[in-house]
């Protein structure tokens, strides 16, 4: 059997060309505490230096055998660049992801500085992409992600204002989401220019736990279509939570792959969109890699393959404080059972 580099494996997977085995990767952060400890730093520091971001991604991939390096890790880089600040929780002993400390109170207050790509920690992320590109000799695929327009909007405006606004003040909310869409396109195109091999758009707060399918169609879908049209392949459309009612619409947005979490019944999704569509998912990252007894991990991961995943993706960022043996079991299970073809991708 021919072997491929991790990057080639992922590139071919996205083209639905035969590969040697299923790659181990994700469209969300995969940084592990083991990598951070090996580097001798603390979690809050990792977000603040390009070298830390890049090295922790590479070290995580090397330690466990991931096929991709994915940055950044936190969802505040863009809101911070827009002027909303960031809470890094530097004093906390726990692992806490950065959050946005304050949001705009009204839609009309939101201003996008024309030079936002040069503000806040955006240059750090840029530099980390450059390091990833130069340091690992093209071995790993470089993954990037950007929040989708609705979720990005929820980072800069109170979510309940937005959710109520979609019913009470639809015209203004639509205009605001349009603005967010242009912002997302700018960031995603920028990451592609910096050399990301694939990009995931995560409009995670739009599952049907929150919004009705009808609202998804009128409010979320047109923006995602616009975004995917503006980006180069390969592109991933990721939404977490309940997605079975919108999976067909997700498939019409123009991305090469769909990513869902464990709330999605993947077998049902597969029936709806057919075998030719790349579907990634759908295990509960925290339960599987942080909590579960290691003996159960193989069953969960194999279950994703059996249900028809073309790549077994965690439904969310890996929570860094993983159990080492669980991550090893997750990788080993994909290697063990990923040698047979998946619905959309053959094997060499």
């Amino acid at each position: 059997m021919a072997t491929m580099t991790p990057r080639e494996r992922i590139q071919k997977l996205f083209k639905k060309e035969p590969i040697d085995t299923m790659p181990v990767f994700s469209g969300q952060g995969m940084v592990t505490i083991q990598a951070i400890q090996k580097m001798g730093i603390r979690f809050p520091q990792v977000h603040t230096k390009a070298e830390y971001l890049a090295e922790s991604a590479i070290t995580s991939a090397e330690l466990f055998g991931f096929d991709a390096v994915i940055i950044p890790y936190d969802m505040c880089t863009v809101p911070e660049a827009l002027g909303r600040g960031v809470s890094l929780y530097e004093a906390s002993e726990d692992i806490l992801y950065p959050t946005v400390p304050s949001k705009w109170e009204k839609l009309e207050d939101v201003e996008i500085p024309p030079d936002f790509l040069q503000r806040g920690r955006m240059p750090i992320v840029d530099e980390a992409f450059r390091i990833l590109k130069s340091k690992q000799n093209g071995k790993y695929a470089i993954g990037a992600w950007v929040l989708g327009p609705f979720t990005m909007a929820g980072q800069v405006i109170e979510l309940d204002l937005l959710l109520k606004g979609v019913k009470k003040d639809k015209e203004r909310v639509v205009a605001f989401l349009d603005k967010m869409t242009d912002l997302v396109i700018k960031v995603a195109q920028h990451y592609q220019e910096l050399g990301a091999d694939y990009i995931s758009i995560r409009d995670m707060g739009t599952g049907t736990d929150l919004l009705s399918p009808r609202m998804w169609q009128s409010l979320i879908m047109p923006n995602l279509v616009k975004i995917f049209k503006a980006l180069k392949p390969p592109r991933v459309n990721h939404i977490c939570g309940s997605t079975n009612l919108i999976i067909e619409m997700m498939n019409e947005c123009g991305a090469e792959a769909l990513s869902v979490d464990h709330k999605n019944d993947m077998a049902e999704s597969r029936k709806k969109v057919g075998n030719d569509v790349l579907i990634f998912g759908d295990f509960d990252a925290y339960a599987t890699l942080n909590q579960m007894d290691v003996s159960k991990v193989e069953g969960v991961i194999k279950g994703c393959i059996d249900k028809g995943a073309d790549a077994v993706w965690p439904g969310c960022d890996i929570w860094p404080d993983v159990k080492k043996e669980n991550v090893e079991a997750y990788v080993a299970t994909i290697h063990k059972y990923g040698k047979i073809p998946s619905p959309a991708v053959g094997r060499l």
């Binding site: 959710l163 109520k164 979609v166 019913k167 009470k168 049907t208 929150l210 919004l211 009705s212 609202m215």
Partner: peptide, 11 residues
Amino acid sequence: RQEYFVPELLM
């Protein structure tokens, strides 16, 4: 019954 979603609940 999935007639209402979170926006309606909030209102």
